[in-house]
Each structure stands twice: as structure tokens, then as C-alpha cells.
Computed example of a mutant assay.
Amino acid sequence: MTTVTADASGRFEIDGALGVNRLGYGTMQLTGRGVWGPPADPDNAVRVLRRAAELGVTLFDTADSYGPMVAEPLLRRALAPYDEDIVIATKAGLTRQGPDQWTPVGRPAYLRQQCEMSLRILGVERIALLQLHRVDPQVPLEDQVGELKALKDEGKVAHIGLSEVTVHQIEQARAITPIASVQNLYNLANRSAEDVLDHCERHRIAFIPWFPLATGSLAKAGGPLADLASRMSATPSQLALAWLLRRSPVMLPIPGTSSVEHLEQNVAAAGLRLSDDDVAELTSAVA
């Protein structure tokens, strides 16, 4: 039986320069409960990351706030020295006060500090993709993006991304510096960022949907995901990922998991080929 790898998801050039397989991996679930503290089994987390790389995953999404400072060290332990095709995208701009607590801080000095720490913790000379984790409403957007541009100009960052932004904020940022990626909440059950996705597609900006596997009641027995999954000998999660990959050529899903078995199932979604009728059925499942 042939193992499906992330190669089957196709390729995308982030900012026209960073070539990645479209199905990536998100590291948030490798931390403790509430995205706080270390995982119960760090060795297993390392196994998951190494297996992802073995399965052709080349885009690994992380953040300094995952843990905090837990996911980035795990990536270094698992994958350094990094193969040349591995792209690590990290984020700065959210602080942590405890489990499930997140507060944006976009002061330029803080963003610079976190960039410097990520460089050191990941063990790289330049961050391939640094994303503003959240826009801090207390700090002018031009100051936040301007600091990321300064880091890029200094050679510490190769490409700049944003997270949880509007179309207007994307255009504000693009007036300052090229924007390589946007990471917003988006999945089959929640398409509130449809306008942002469409905007990214028009401008060839990578769209990285976080929480890509939220399927909720759609996956329950008798629901459209469950029925179609049964017909295709797939899982509801695999269908949700396959739908995302079909939705737009700029879509780069980053499903996360702390299980090697679930990782392998997620990657296998890259091999699913949905018909136009399948896509229409899934799309219409949520009005």
C-alpha cells in the first residue's frame, strides 16, 4: 500500500520565493493543556514532528506564545539541522498570562525582542516567515508592521505575514511592506473570513487557515461529512482538509495533532480527490 505524502497536496510559492507543500503542520497542540506549559510526553512530540517531515510536510507553523516558548524548542530538537526544504513560520505579538489566556502586545521593542528570541531558540540566522500574531489595538498598525519591515531590512526576517486581520488591515500593511501570508480562522464550518481569503487569492498571498478541522455537527452520524466520508472511505477530518485544498490555490492548511496516527490520517487527505459534486455538497452543508 502506497503511503500518501504531503507532496500530493501540490506546491505553493509563498511570496513567490518560499516553495512549500500546501498541506503543512501546526504546532500549537504539542504544548500542555490550554496551550500552556510543556506536553505530557515531549519525546512523543518530537516523534510527531519528525514523522511530519518524513511524510513530506515542509511548512511548520509555530509561535513564541505556544507554551510559551515550548513549541519552538521542540521544533529545533526534532528537526535541526533543518533540511533546506523546511520552512518554519513563527509568530510574535501575543503574550500569555496563563492557560487559554492571550493578550496582544505590538510595541516595536517587544516584537523585536521576540524575533531575536525566536532566532536564538529555533537556531536559525533568519526567520523564513515571521507573522504578526495579532494586531495590537493600542499601537498604530504602521508601527507594528514597520518594525517587522525593519527586521526584514536587517536580514533577520525573510518574509512577513499577518494573523486575524481584515482586508483593510492587509492593504494598510501592504502599503508599508510586501505581505507574504495571512493566517485567519477559516474552516468548512466557519467561513467568516471569506472576503479575506478572496482578497489573498487575487493578490497571490498565502492564506493559512487556523483551526482548519472544526467540523462540529457536520461530522455527526447522518451529517454530510459523515455520509460522504463513508462513501469515499475517508474520515470527516480528511474531507474537511481536502475541501480546503480545493477551495483556493493559495490555501495552506496547517492541521495540528499530538498523535502520529492522526498526523498520518491528516496527511493522507492530500491524496483525496473531490469531484465538483462532492465540493458542492460539502460547501452547501453550511449556509
Results as ranks from 00 to 15, higher is better:
residue 103 T to W: 11
residue 177 T to V: 15
residue 205 I to H: 01
residue 130 L to P: 03
residue 123 G to Y: 11
residue 150 A to W: 03
residue 145 V to Y: 02
residue 142 E to F: 05
residue 179 I to E: 06
residue 113 Q to H: 12
residue 154 E to K: 09
residue 188 L to G: 11
residue 151 L to T: 08
residue 160 I to L: 05
residue 167 V to E: 01
residue 190 N to C: 02
residue 113 Q to K: 14
residue 99 P to L: 03
residue 109 A to Y: 11
residue 125 E to M: 05
residue 163 S to C: 13
residue 111 L to Q: 14
residue 171 E to N: 01
residue 134 R to V: 04
residue 122 L to R: 11
residue 110 Y to Q: 13
residue 161 G to V: 05
residue 177 T to R: 06
residue 105 V to N: 14
residue 141 L to H: 05
residue 121 I to V: 15
residue 194 E to C: 01
residue 120 R to C: 05
residue 211 F to S: 14
residue 160 I to K: 02
residue 161 G to F: 11
residue 196 V to M: 04
residue 188 L to Q: 07
residue 121 I to C: 10
residue 139 V to P: 07
residue 185 L to R: 15
residue 179 I to F: 09
residue 202 R to H: 11
residue 195 D to V: 02
residue 131 Q to M: 13
residue 211 F to G: 09
residue 171 E to C: 00
residue 116 E to W: 05
residue 190 N to E: 09
residue 112 R to G: 09
residue 157 V to A: 10
residue 185 L to P: 01
residue 155 G to P: 12
residue 129 L to D: 10
residue 175 A to H: 07
residue 144 Q to D: 10
residue 145 V to P: 02
residue 179 I to P: 04
residue 198 D to P: 01
residue 125 E to A: 15
residue 132 L to C: 03
residue 166 T to L: 07
residue 204 R to H: 10
residue 193 A to K: 00
